[in-house]
Design a binder for these strands. Structure first.
Length: 417
RNA sequence: GGGGGGGUUCCCGAGUGGUCAAAGGGAACAGACUGUAAAUCUGUCGGCGAAGCCUUCGGAGGUUCGAAUCCUCCCCCCCCCA
């Protein structure tokens, strides 16, 4: 086992900020001396069950703590999820049923285990409802009494919203308190969070002190930008690369990131060593390097991390085939559809077919796609909105550059007219 | 409790009686150019087999030939005072 100092050096690597480093060192030293584990806390919002490369940064750090012998407690925020972290500021967040939360928690496990060690001596997953549901109103008041409005309003997004005359509900103010209280419940030694979680994590320190506990160390990790290269990676924005997505998806999405993000992704989304990173950085700075080649490498590295080298190779081949050579993917959906048509010859209006296959959302959308030359039937651009086709024969429909559907006669049901 | 300002299509936001399916921007989608990058340009961006019609401007009524726009009641948000 590594000494406390050695552990410290490894753990601090990659963190944006550690509050406070000397406390972490003390904790590590004491853990070493007394032969016990530190408790590492990480919370997850249960509403979006897809974990992505942004979450993976934290998960890898958790794994590192585990490998050093410490215990990770992942908190699924079913109760906090009822509020929705105001950081995301989405107005109407649907409340999840308990069943949904449990299903999402299960889904989390599957994904978390791709990175984190599932050994129960090093991992525990709990719902924070397990304590919040037991609290009485008096308990809640006591919790509320431990913090002041002024301090809560220090939080940047609260003060922004206040300034901009946007609503803040009282219950939203509880979010940081609840997250902080989680730390009290599990007596966390360290809480991991993205930099945007700083305030919430610090509240945890304050609440622990108020309970006479040793305050947790807060370790803040960088936030990864999404595939748009601007906003943080997030499922709700739709700019994410999920760790349980297919090799092709991961590869393709990685190729779509802006060039300026290549280095950032190498640093945050891969486990590349320092020398490897330096090599990439050097290549990027050379004028005759085509950034695309480095991006291909990046995409390959990321797919390999989650699916292995063979899949990475397949994904690259397919990518080249479709996008460099305009070919077809290996797997094209063959949906079962029902469309109105003339049953005698199976002639179906192309617009109806596009809607039935899900390639277009409405007839109007389908028309527009056709008018703009975005629809291909068996490889040829469909030029007329009035086209029909015989669904007695198989066909290949393409919308835009990357959406394909195969029409298979057996899967087509004519609703008749 | 009193006073004031607001709620517009996915988001922001213009629109104060007809020319409004509603300016502008963003997002998104399609096309061109490319490296499924960026930038740029073009087009689209409520629904209907497209003709005209239907639904939409917080909700419900009303005035009017005609309402996002005026009136009434209700719901919600923000600010100031208490």
């Amino acid at each position: 086992m590594l000494s406390a100092k050695e552990q410290m050096a490894a753990l601090v690597e990659g963190a944006v900020e550690v509050i406070k480093e000397e406390e972490l060192l003390q904790k590590l030293e004491r853990a070493e001396r007394e032969g016990r584990q530190l408790i590492i806390k990480q919370g997850f919002d249960p509403s979006a069950p897809d974990l992505h490369l942004g979450h993976a940064i934290g998960l890898r750090k958790l794994r590192q703590f585990q490998d050093l012998g410490h215990k990770v407690i992942i908190i699924i925020g079913d109760y906090t999820g009822m509020i929705g972290d105001p950081t995301e500021r989405s107005e109407t967040r649907p409340r999840l049923t308990h069943e949904q939360v449990l299903a999402n928690a299960e889904s989390y496990k599957q994904q978390v285990f791709k990175i984190v060690d599932p050994d129960p001596s090093r991992l525990e997953i709990v719902l924070n409802g397990s304590w919040f549901s037991q609290m009485s109103f008096a308990d809640v008041m006591e919790l509320a009494g431990k913090y002041t409005v002024a301090r809560i309003l220090e939080r940047d997004d609260f003060s922004q919203r206040f300034k901009n005359e946007q609503p803040i509900s009282i219950h939203e103010l509880f979010y940081p308190l609840m997250q902080g209280h989680d730390s009290v419940e599990i007596k966390a030694d360290v809480e991991l969070g993205a930099t945007e979680q700083k305030f919430n994590c610090l509240v945890g320190r304050d609440l622990m002190k108020a309970h006479g506990l040793e305050p947790q160390v807060v370790m803040l990790l960088p936030v990864l930008e999404g595939t748009d290269g601007v906003r943080r990676m997030s499922k709700s924005i739709g700019n994410y690369i999920g760790i349980s997505e297919s090799p092709k998806e991961i590869y393709g999405k990685t190729m779509s990131i802006p060039d300026a993000m290549i280095m950032r992704y190498f640093e945050l989304a891969t486990t590349s060593s320092k020398p490897e990173l330096d090599a990439v950085r050097k290549l990027l700075s050379e004028p005759d390097t085509n950034p695309r080649d480095l991006k291909r490498r990046l995409a390959g590295v990321i797919v390999t991390m989650y699916h292995g080298p063979d899949e990475a190779e397949n994904a690259e081949e397919e990518f080249d085939r479709i996008f460099a050579k305009g070919g077809l993917p290996d797997e094209i959906p063959e949906p079962a559809i029902t469309v109105g048509g003339q049953s005698d010859r199976g002639a179906v209006w192309i617009v109806a077919l596009l809607v039935a296959t899900g390639l277009a959302r409405s007839n109007g959308a389908a028309r527009r796609l056709i008018e703009q030359g975005g629809i291909r039937l068996d490889g040829n651009v469909v030029s007329s909105v009035d086209s029909t086709l015989a669904v007695n024969d198989p066909h290949l429909l393409q919308a835009g550059k990357r959406r394909f559907v195969r029409i298979v006669p057996e899967n087509v049901k004519l609703s008749g007219e």
